[in-house]
Write a protein that binds this DNA or RNA. Structure first.
Lengths: 140, 140
DNA sequence: CTTGATTTTGCAACACTGTTGCATCACATT
DNA sequence: AATGTGATGCAACAGTGTTGCAAAATCAAG
């Protein structure tokens, strides 16, 4: 079936991203995973593809609101696909969960980041809310 | 006045930390700042003290609930003193604010991290909530 | 006080992540 | 086919965190 080859290209085109081979591979890799991924994870799966090429593809995706960065405190930035109509505004942000055991990061899309009453003159632009603990899989 | 020399030692002793020269210097540096500091910042102020020595002092402080780590997405972990009776439990956690302009990180101690309704079987242990934007000083 | 054990510190080195510069290559347009 | 634009691969680098080991300082026991 070729739907797996056609879909990613459509996604890229919908975001005005030229669907080059590397970008397609990176996107397919992200689509194949349910968790947020490190650059290194993608590198391992796409064996033979340069780290920098993946890096630039991801940066391109970010700029075009296709993926978002998550800083889960593990030391490495993780990346996950945005939801369809995400424009990476404040309202689009959601909470993430980092499991200390399997070290995987979950997008809790149903949990919007709560707005906070900041001190006067402070302006919010974005936020990073990561809850850490043990995920359902590791909690046996 | 010698209160500045006696106080830090008391703080360390109260947390069962042996007040060695390096530890005192690191603690004094943290006390002298209103914002969270990077290892590198402390290193710069304590000119001549080894990075690793500061690192180990900080790690010791962390273990004894004297400082907490903040991951503000700047790439470098920042450290700030805990409040007096902090035991680094969930209830002790507060929101942080990272200013994109001056790159300083503020402890918003009055803002407790809100609890979230997680998916079933997920266990919370800690959290990192950083709001990013422009601080009052830079917002002119 | 001397000896020995333990802890702390300084130094060197390393791993990992992210990033940039540059040359080459592919591709699209004329 | 010629040309220009962008994508890719390669090499190198910087920042951060971390560990191993040896020297120094501290502490405890005799």
């Amino acid at each position: 079936m070729n739907s797996q080859k056609i879909e990613p290209a459509k996604i890229l085109l919908a975001k005005n991203i030229k669907p080059t081979p590397i970008r397609l591979k990176v996107l397919e890799t992200l689509l194949s995973q349910t968790h947020a991924m490190r650059l290194y994870d993608i590198e391992n799966i796409l064996d033979g593809v340069e780290r920098t090429s993946i890096f630039r593809a991801i940066k391109n995706f970010e700029k075009n609101n296709l993926v978002h960065e998550i800083d889960d405190g593990s030391g490495a930035t993780k990346f996950a696909l945005c939801e369809d109509r995400c424009e990476c505004n404040l309202e689009d942000l959601h909470v993430h969960f980092f499991c200390k055991i399997c070290e995987q990061t979950f997008c809790l899309q149903q949990l919007q980041i709560p707005s906070m009453e900041l001190p006067p003159e402070f302006v919010v632009e974005s936020a990073n809310f990561v809850i850490k603990g043990i995920c359902a899989n590791c909690n046996t």
